[in-house]
Design a protein around this nucleic acid. Structure first.
Length: 523
RNA sequence: GGCCCAUUGGUCAAGUGGUCUAAGACACCGCCCUUUCACGGCGGCUACAGGGGUUCGAAUCCCCUAUGGGUCACCA
């Protein structure tokens, strides 16, 4: 039984996705329950529609809850409410019993007073905070309390901590192992003036009542884990098991730092959608960050569903990993390479409809043509790894589109050494035009390239050519390049023969004529 | 500043006292395959932060130093 417990800010970043993914996978692996609880005790942070935004953003990356909230923001599950502000009465009743037991007390100190005290402590080089003799309201008499309340003074409820800063408490973290933390001696706030609990108190009450067995959260909570253990103990609850996940960092000049919302676009989930990284890419990258042995598993099980891999907490890194977009792209290329044409075609279309509507329309109008384009060299034993994200696709296949190809030609063809080779190129193209048969198979097609090579006096012997290029006018590779540039105006493309089959006879011939016209005009 | 956590190649990392002249992956470089590019194959590069201990033996345990990160709210 584990959970994801964000504030309803509506913003899901890579770190939250990471934590929630690990938590969910862990629950699923053990047939446990994974639920969503919204921590809205700070009304300032709340964003309109925040809950549905979070649920939707996570669901795009395959994160689903067994209890909590659905995509419309409707609550479901047996241990609710899952919205902390609706649990106010629950917290209050526990607070009451704590006060009765003398384990908590009202504090009337104003924020200004606390601030002043802090300055004094700093000036005296003392530990700051509300503790020991600094906890002024700790021993207020019943009369004082009543008087203050009568005067209408605002108050908060504080823990009457019996912890000793000199003593240590053992925490067996599922990721980090045995940790020794100093006890908490601060009279921390349990309930705020608005009547809602602080995170610490809500965490203890909710995770007990909701029967959470595993708390998976960011390492920023580690220092307060001691306090949480103390609270569980005072309440007489059994503490859950903790797993503190290290923060994903980024190299920024000489230092590593936390991913920041303002500086790092890759922190936001929208970035991955916009760039068009497949969902699986992001999840597999994060899984790999969680357990690096995942990549070995993936290598041995290239097509197995991700769910078959079990994440292990004790294999997770304790030092914060650096975010590496290059690695992510490599993973993405492999994932896309393993997809069949239908998948690529459909996923690309879905992406294009949202982020490149014009091109999506073009594809829609020429479905078969583009489907064939996507099928080039796909599905074999050695699939190409041409792109890592959908936003790269258009540029990659643009030469198939007559208009985009024409646009590209505005700056001319990219033939090398035109002045000396113009005749050879013209010769090649004219020969090719007469020999070309759209029904040729690869072998027949290549035989014709060989014929042309002979005719224009180039060599078919690449080994010899590579040894002594100066001995030859040119090679069969040059002939292929002439045709490649004529068709695509690029030097690097997938299999030329396949490209021409997809382009069709008419387009192939037209492009030869275009190139010939260009070459003849140069005279 | 106090406290906590960490530190293995450019990056992610395996490693839990002997099997470490330290795995694998990404990146980079070279070669092979090859009509181009990719894919693939082969090879190379580069690491236990530094210093002290403990031990027959340390990447692994202890201490110190350095560096990085986290935290010290009526925010979560």
């Amino acid at each position: 039984m584990t959970r994801f417990a964000p504030s309803p800010t509506g913003f899901v970043h890579l770190g939250s996705l990471f934590a929630s993914m690990v938590a969910m996978r862990l629950a699923r692996q053990t047939n446990g329950v994974f639920y969503l609880r919204i921590e809205d005790t700070d009304k300032k942070r709340e964003v309109e529609g925040g809950i549905t935004k979070i649920v939707n953003a996570l669901s795009k990356f395959g994160i689903y809850f067994d209890e909590g909230f659905d995509k419309d923001g409707n609550e479901f599950g047996n241990y609710g409410p899952y919205l902390q502000s609706k649990r106010e009465e629950i917290y209050k009743s526990y607070i009451k019993s704590l006060i009765e037991k003398g384990l908590a007390y009202p504090c009337f100190c104003s924020p200004e007073e606390i601030e002043k005290q802090k300055e004094e402590q700093t000036a005296k080089d003392l530990r700051v905070g509300y503790y020991g003799t600094w906890a002024k309201c700790r021993n207020l008499s019943m009369e004082d309390i009543e008087k203050n309340i009568k005067e209408g003074k605002e108050f908060i409820i504080r823990l009457k901590s019996e912890g000793d800063i000199e003593k240590f408490i053992e925490l067996n973290d599922l990721i980090r192992g045995n940790l020794s933390l100093p006890e908490n001696d601060q009279d921390i706030v349990l309930m705020k003036t608005n009547g809602l609990p602080t995170y610490h108190f809500a965490h203890v009450i909710d995770d007990h009542l909701m029967k959470t067995t595993h708390v998976i959260r960011g390492e920023e909570w580690l220092p307060s884990a001691s306090l949480h253990l103390q609270l569980f103990n005072i309440m007489g609850f059994k503490a859950p098991l903790y797993a503190h996940i290290s923060t994903i960092r980024k190299q920024d000049g000489p230092s590593k730092r936390k991913l920041s919302k303002r500086k790092d676009p890759e922190l936001s989930m929208e970035f991955y959608e916009k760039e068009g990284y497949p969902i699986q890419t992001v999840i597999e990258y994060l899984t790999n960050l969680a357990n690096s042995s995942f990549e070995d598993w993936r290598k041995n099980n290239p097509l197995a569903p991700l769910e078959d891999y079990n994440i292990r907490l004790d294999n997770m890194s304790v030092s914060g990993p650096l975010f590496d977009i290059v690695k992510l792209e490599d993973i993405s290329k492999t994932i896309i390479a393993n997809m069949n044409t239908d998948e690529v075609f459909n996923l690309y279309n879905t992406w294009a409809k949202s982020f490149d509507a014009d091109f999506a329309k073009i594809i829609e109008d020429n479905k078969e043509y583009y489907y064939n384009i996507f099928s080039i060299e796909r599905g074999g034993v050695k699939p190409r790894k041409d792109f890592s994200k959908w936003s790269e696709v258009k540029n990659y296949i643009s030469y198939f589109n007559d208009e985009l190809f024409a646009e590209n030609l505005v700056s001319g063809y990219i033939f090398d050494n035109l002045d000396t080779r113009r005749e050879d190129i013209i010769n090649t193209l004219q020969n090719y035009l007469s020999l070309y048969n759209e029904n040729d198979n690869n072998e027949e097609w290549f035989d014709k390239i060989k014929v042309i090579t002979d005719k224009i006096g180039y060599t078919k012997d690449m080994k010899q050519y590579k040894k002594n290029p100066g001995n030859f006018k040119g090679s069969i590779a040059d002939v292929a390049t002439f045709i490649r540039i004529t068709m695509t105006n690029r030097k690097n493309t997938p299999d030329l023969h396949r490209i021409m089959i997809v382009m069709g006879k008419e387009r192939v011939e037209k492009r030869i004529h275009m190139a010939l016209e260009f070459l003849n005009k140069m005279q």
